[in-house]
């Protein structure tokens, strides 16, 4: 039982704005973030690949009442990457009050943010961020 792409390797790459994922040799699907098996067909025949980090916003929200440790307002969104998988992250450099439905479909590019640990997490965390492409 060995994980091909570990959480550690995934986040280390994310810290360099590189998005690693797993490509399935059985069905051709992509699994991002990493899992033990392909999210499309459950095969374990997976290879580590670097994705483009580009995609389109599928949905978003402006968080106005935040969890402990986060400062509202900020935007959380889900992006469909060009390779197919969807990924959650923060949409950055957008005015929260100007974030309307026309954000959906906008092209974005991957970055990252380091989130300090809190009393419920095992230390520092890394999240994907997405900045709008012109």
């Amino acid at each position: 039982m060995e994980y091909k792409l570990t959480h550690k390797a995934y986040t280390s790459a994310l810290r360099e704005n590189r998005l690693l994922g797993l490509k399935c040799n059985a069905c051709g699907g992509y699994t991002v973030p990493p899992k033990k098996v392909c999210i499309e067909c459950a095969s374990e025949d997976l290879d580590i690949v670097e994705l483009s980090g580009r995609g389109e916003i599928r949905t978003f929200t402006v968080i106005r009442v935040a969890s402990e440790g986060f400062q509202a307002p900020y935007i959380v969104g889900i992006v469909e990457l060009d390779e197919g998988p969807w990924l959650m992250g923060n949409i950055i450099d957008v005015d929260c009050d100007g974030a309307t439905m026309d954000m959906i479909g906008r092209r974005v590019r991957l970055g990252h943010a380091v989130i300090p640990g809190d009393k419920y997490s095992a230390g520092e965390r890394v999240t994907a961020t997405f900045g709008l492409e012109n």
């Binding site: 959480h7 973030p33 599928r58 949905t59 978003f60 929200t61 968080i63 009442v65 935040a66 969890s67 986060f70 900020y74 959380v76 969104g77 889900i78 959650m88 992250g89 923060n90 439905m101 959906i104 943010a113 989130i115 997490s121 965390r125 890394v126 999240t127 994907a128």
Partner: peptide
């Protein structure tokens, strides 16, 4: 998901808010 959703600061209302936007679109 504590590894891949939590760090983005998602909240429970936030999950359903994203669903509402997705549904509307």
């Amino acid at each position: 998901d504590s590894y891949y959703e939590g760090p983005a600061g998602i909240t429970f209302p936030g999950v359903f808010a994203m669903l509402a936007h997705l549904y509307s679109h």
